[in-house]
Amino acid sequence: MAVTVSKPVPTRWFGRIGDVLKTLFWGNRPFRRVLALVIFFGGWQFLCAINFDFFINFQLIPSPWEVLFATIDFVTSDPWIHFRSSIQRVFFGYLAASVLGIFLGVLIGWFEAVEDLFLPPLELLRPIPAVAWIPLAILMFPNAESGMVYITFIGAFFPMLISTIRGVESTLSDTVLIRVGQCLGANSWHIFKDIVIPGSMPSIASGLTIGMGNAWFCLVTAEILAGRYGVGYITWESYVTSNYPPIVMGMLLIGLMGALSSWAVGRATNALMPWRVINKQGGG
C-alpha cells in the first residue's frame, strides 16, 4: 500500500527573511514606537527640504536639523534656569488645581447644596481660555510669578473638576454598589470612603492626566508674563524677535515635558488602581 508523504513546501529565501524581519521589527512594540517618531521627523525634514508650498507653506519653517542645532545651542548655555522656572510654575499650578479640583469636585458630586452653590459660576468661567486671563492675572496678583502659576492652574483645574464630579456622580448612579454598602450597615461616611471615592478613582485619574497636559498647554500663555526665564518665555521671545528655530525647539521641549509628566501621572495613578484590567485590541 502506497503511503503518500506530503513533501515539505520549500520556503523561499525572501519569505524566511520576511519572517525574521517581522519578528524583529513589526512584532516589536518599542520598534513601532520609534518608527512613528522617525516617520514624523523624516516627513517634516522632507517637506522642508523640498520647500513644500501648497496651501501650507514650509519655506520659512525651520527644519529638524536647524531645530536640533538651536537645541544644542540652548542646552549648552545654561538651560537649567529656564527648565526650573517652567517646571516650578507648572508644578505649583498643577498642585493647586489637583487639590482644589478634586476637593471641590468630590463635594459638588456628593452634596446637592454644594453643587447649587458652586457650580454655576464655575461653569461660567470654564469656557474662558487661559490667554484671556492674562490682563486679570496681572491686575490680581502681587507679582508675575504668582500670575503665571495662576494661568497654569486655570488650565489644569477645570478638567480635574469636571472629571471628579462625573466620577462621583457615575458611582452614585450605580445602584448595586450603593446598595451593597447599605446592606452591610454602611452609613454615608462609609459609603463615601469605601465605595464612592474608589469608584470615582478612574475618572479622577483621567482628570489628573488631562490636567497635567493642560497645565503645560498653558505654559507659553503664562510665560508671556515672564521677564527673563522659562521655556515658554523663550518660545514667545523668539517669536517677538523673529528667531524661528528656537520657537519650534520651545514647542517641542514643552511637548516633551508635557508628555513625560503625563506619562508619570498615568503610571502613578495606575499603580493606585491595581484592581483594573485593561485588554486592548491586538494586545499580547
Binding site: V176, R179, V180, Q182, L184, G185, P198, M201, W275, R276
Partner: peptide, 26 residues
C-alpha cells in the same frame, strides 16, 4: 437597609477595588 438583612445580588457585586478578603471583611 441594615446588616441584619444580608443581601446577595443577581449581578456580580463585589467591590472591584477590594480583594476577596477585604470585600468580606467590610
Amino acid at each position: 437597609p441594615g446588616a441584619d438583612r444580608g443581601f446577595v445580588f443577581q449581578q456580580y457585586s463585589l467591590l472591584p477595588w477590594k480583594t476577596t478578603f477585604q470585600n468580606i471583611e467590610l
